[in-house]
Design a binder for these strands. Structure first.
Lengths: 240, 240
DNA sequence: TGAATAGTGTCTGTTAGACATTATATG
DNA sequence: CATATAATGTCTAACAGACACTATTCA
């Protein structure tokens, strides 16, 4: 952590710009969608980018706090599932100079977003686009988006991460649909339920099941408190 | 990526310090060891820390290049396996101010380090310590070390990552010993070889097997070129 | 030939995938 | 009672774990 050329002046040379960018994801009509914001100033004025902003060293405790602040302020989203993704850096990714972007990804339920009088699209120019239809973005935001989508789809293979895309209560059939949309494949009902039970992250909700049609109503589930932020990793293979 | 308070001056407020820290790991006598360097200036002058340094915006293309430079310059290590770990940040982790550390982890073969006339301990005050014996480190370096060790051990469960701790050629028995040391458990020989074959990352070396004792000599293997940086992830579960 | 390690064969309990059956609601 | 979706039962092929056996070298 030293500057070898200036032993007595550790901050003698130009420091990079430090920003936080967030890939905010939700599921709408079986499509994984990312939130984009219209830039209010240059560079890339008027273009659509991932929500992001400078780290405020005067008020942010750390980068996670900056990400939380940016999500609330610029996207109107509170307390979603939020996890650090990867840090992107370099001389050429931002025309303003050598820059660092600490990238996060966030998952929200689309239903939860649409609270009365607080629609995200009211306060700010925010739009949702299907991630597979996004061909290019300013800066290196397409790389960041791609990394986040790959991460979420990869974790869907072996973890309960997608529960954070669900509303407060949901049925197992709905949860299965979400997994199927993310993985773009069909899953076997019995196998899916076995796996979800093993992961031990959801529990029956106390509410009564409400029926929607001429058929047996489905049990409502909710995310277990303790497991809300945990990610289960298969600890099989190679070990015995 | 804007400063909302200073629309025309995007870099108006204090930027964080940006550093790179590296958890350099190797295996010595069945113990996972990390490289520590003695700090040449304050803060924490004289204490042992992870190798690290400021990003040089004038010469480093990106953070990975900075990590490579620091490894070569300060630890005398060239072209190891190197991967971004996680970024640590905040107001209090460094007494010099709000700081960002883009952390990497690197794997090297201990045998490869000891080339004649280039011992790492010659040029710099570098020492290797068993990771499980390291109780405290300056800054938040113990957290960084812990994250790296957890990551390596976790990846050992399902990937071929540990091949990067091996010398140029090695036997499957030696590779199994490395896995066993990392996982701190014994593995079944048959199952281990089945799995390594599935991962498809090593191939028989052209060299003749050399025998070491009154027993059948072992086939020497080497890492496949194409797979040198790839990490295999089990794509089973939940999918059919 | 015995000792030591390398390498392969193979049995078996477990389980994931596939599909069948039962349960419960409405009209 | 027909129908639609929920929930569970169960068969089987595949595989991971366990262990036995063969191979090859040197003393």
């Amino acid at each position: 952590m030293d500057d070898p050329r200036n032993p007595t002046a550790p901050r003698a040379f130009e420091q990079p710009i430090v920003t936080v960018d967030i890939v905010l994801l939700t599921l709408m009509e079986d499509e994984l969608c990312a939130a984009l914001l219209q830039r209010a100033r240059p560079p890339h004025l008027g273009e659509w980018t991932l929500p992001g902003g400078f780290v405020h060293t005067d008020t942010d405790e750390d980068a996670l706090a900056a990400a939380t602040r940016i999500l609330e302020t610029k996207a109107g989203v509170e307390s979603p599932y939020l996890e650090q993704l990867q840090t992107f850096s370099g001389r050429h990714r931002d025309s303003r100079g050598w820059s660092v972007s600490i990238a996060y990804y966030a998952l929200v339920s689309h239903q939860t977003l649409q609270r009365p009088g607080e629609s995200a699209t009211d306060a700010s120019p925010l739009k949702w686009r299907a991630v597979d239809s996004i061909r290019s973005l300013p800066f290196d935001h397409r790389d960041i988006l791609r990394a986040a989508v790959d991460r979420v789809r990869s974790k869907t293979l072996y973890s309960s991460l997608p529960v954070h895309l669900m509303p407060l209560t949901f049925t197992l059939s709905q949860l299965q649909s979400v997994y199927e949309a993310l993985l773009r494949t069909e899953l076997d009902k019995r196998g899916f339920r076995r796996r979800i039970e093993e992961l031990d992250v959801v529990e029956p909700a106390p509410q009564q099941p409400t029926t929607r049609g001429a058929h047996r109503p489905a049990q409502l589930y909710r995310v277990k408190r303790k497991a809300a932020n945990g990610v289960a990793i298969a600890d099989r293979n190679l070990t015995r």
